[in-house]
Design a protein around this nucleic acid. Structure first.
Lengths: 213, 213
DNA sequence: ACCTGAACACCGTTCAAGT
DNA sequence: ACCTGAACACCGTTCAAGT
């Protein structure tokens, strides 16, 4: 399986082999190459001309698959949200735990995704924020964050969570995680690794900032 | 005073008036023009050549004042953090209130800054996050966020806040705000304006997600 | 349907030269 | 000390033409 992937995706191999006039899978190849560039050199280093060069096609061929550069970035962001959704779904599918445990798993999955794909996550939110962002992108984002709302709703039925709109309650947690990542550098906040902070923050959110009466 | 500013900063006036060989204030003028572009068209639209054109100087003259484009963006981010610091400082200087009120004022100031200068805030965090970001930028960020830590420390002395490192406690609040902004679109989350959500979130953070016993 | 090549209007950065 | 002009090596996008 891994060999299959590396054979179809290996850029050098594609370049060396005499390529037919039609690439056959240019859209996929562009997205794959773009993501590699994103993770290694940042979003600003993504260039349609450079990607074309890597894939051995003319610099105008991306046009057939993406109306412009932004469309390619949006497609990359959409894939990001889809994978993000899967990661969060996996983290919450096990219902045999209490609310705090589920919430901790969910937030750890979030932080883990953020650390592994930090440039992609940045691109995802930037694309979503853009004026005139495609509807699919907003929907994909909504879907991913729905996992938290679902966990909160279930926590309410078991009496572990206060009453209120689950979406607005879950906002607090996601916001805290998203912000934690934004405020941190190198996966650390004031020298403490993020994944060590997660458990602490979740407990603080559940118990509140006020001293116990 | 306002007239003075508009006279010295008005780009059209500078362009129309026969300009001496030395601009005299090119560094300032570049930063001012760059911020205008940032707020109206986004960070990606900032171009050294275009700024030079607007100011009526050659496209190579920015080089004397900024080693490269990134240096100009960093300078812009640094100014952002300084203004951010001032805004948060003003919001917390009045000590005649309880912890919840002070915290709400602080977070409202944060959200207000974020809504007024969203592109700048984005640039600030991106610049801070960059590998090899200048030390000044990290220090300026630290200084601004110190206002929250101070409010938490004081809340502890009056028994309104649980024990613990004030920096780590304040992280929860700032993270929540930062994330709230990131997760929202157009200053709204699911149609509800951010400033309406702030009070609700602060109360939730203070009381906790758990139902009252 | 998919890809190419030439052309256009942009970039940032470097460097020798001017005031 | 500060600014300029020419040059270099890049961009994204358009469009007529090729397979």
């Amino acid at each position: 399986m891994l060999q299959f992937i590396s054979r179809t995706c290996n850029v050098a191999a594609v370049k060396a082999t005499p390529r037919p006039y039609h690439h056959g899978n240019l859209r996929e190849a562009l997205l794959h190459a773009a993501e590699k560039t994103l993770e290694t050199s940042g979003a600003q280093s993504i260039s349609l001309r450079e990607l074309s060069r890597e894939l051995g096609v003319s610099h105008t061929s991306p046009r057939r698959h993406f109306a412009n550069k932004q469309a390619l970035l949006d497609a990359l962001a959409l894939r990001g949200f889809e994978r993000f959704d899967l990661a969060l779904g996996r983290a919450t599918k096990d219902r045999g735990h209490n609310f705090q445990t589920r919430l901790t798993k969910l937030t750890r999955a979030f932080v883990s995704f953020a650390l592994k794909h930090s440039a992609l996550l940045g691109l995802m939110f930037e694309a979503k924020h853009r004026a005139g962002a495609p509807r699919e992108l907003l929907e994909a984002s909504e879907k991913a964050f729905g996992h938290a709302a679902a966990a909160f709703a279930e926590g309410q039925t078991t009496g572990e969570v206060v009453a209120g709109d689950p979406w607005r309650l879950s906002l607090v947690v996601f916001a805290a995680m998203q912000g934690l990542i934004a405020l941190s550098t190198d996966g650390k906040f004031k020298g403490i690794p993020l994944d060590r902070l997660v458990g602490e923050i979740i407990e603080r959110l559940i118990l509140g900032l006020r001293p116990r009466p």
